[in-house]
Computed example of a mutant assay.
Amino acid sequence: MWTEEIVAGRPAWRHTVSGVVFREVPRGTFRMGLSDAELDAVRAIERSGGAEDTLEAFFAGAGNARPVREVRVEPFLIARHPLTVAQVRYWLPEYEDDYADKDSGTARLEDDLDDLIEAMPFRLPSEAEWEYAARAGTTTLTFRGDGKPGEDQLLDDFGDEERTAAAENAFGLAAMGSANEICADVWIPGFAAAPTDARPRIGDGNRTVRGGAADLYPWQGCDEWLLLLSATRYEHAQFTAVRPVAPLPSR
């Protein structure tokens, strides 16, 4: 079911039948959530004139990604990038996408979401797994640092292998934050009493979403870059992308 290979100079696992490429994320601990240092970095961007509008709403909602806590994560596989239209069609042959221009573009699912989750032999990442993978060992706003992320950080189509490889973080993952990616956790504002391991918080209601800056492209100057931040989280409402995870294959 799995084939080990080198993709863009890094070890990878390819799911043989679907062709989806996964990266192995190592065991580790990290500080999950929007830290004081990250809030200060956003304030610095605002003071320097980098914000298009007032960021009062962002700061007012910062508690949704706090308090920061240390989380322990066990190793797992996660897809190199969100599933594309072509990849979704492996499990849902009749799938049509109203948002992607090409089959190599990120698939955004609405009514077909539950059908895909049921059909795949994979699961959704927990929020902790997603943020750990997005940070890839960093503690800054994005894996590229505390500077204001720009539209050049967006990646929504994976037909160009060179561009995809150039967008990878230290774990070999591309486009973390570009599309709104759904997680296994139910939406709960804030991290009070959240587990200190990577288990998802489960229950009734909508799931949590991470990322989404490309969903508003072309940017209209409303500070869409905030959706690229590793700690940004919100409640799922409409369409969503899927980046599946899997346990490590046995060697």
Rank of each mutant, 00 (worst) to 15 (best):
I6G: 07
A8C: 14
G9K: 04
A12Q: 05
W13Q: 13
V21P: 11
F22S: 01
F22Q: 02
V25T: 05
G28S: 06
G28C: 03
F30H: 05
L34V: 07
L39G: 10
D40M: 12
A41I: 04
R43D: 08
E46M: 08
E46Q: 13
A51P: 02
T54R: 15
E56C: 10
A57S: 14
G63L: 09
V73T: 06
A79K: 00
R80E: 13
H81S: 07
V88M: 01
L92F: 03
S104P: 08
A107N: 10
R108E: 09
L109M: 06
E110L: 13
D112G: 05
L124N: 04
W130A: 07
W130C: 02
E131V: 10
Y132R: 07
A136V: 00
G137K: 02
T140Y: 08
G150A: 08
G150F: 11
L154C: 03
L155R: 05
L155V: 05
G159L: 04
E161A: 15
T164H: 03
A165H: 02
F171D: 01
F171S: 01
L173R: 03
L173V: 00
G177L: 06
I188H: 13
A194P: 00
T196W: 11
A198V: 11
P200K: 11
D204L: 15
V209N: 09
A213S: 10
A214T: 00
Q220M: 15
D223P: 10
E224M: 06
E224D: 13
L226P: 02
A231N: 04
A231V: 10
H236R: 10
A237E: 13
F239K: 14
A241I: 01
V245L: 04
P249C: 07
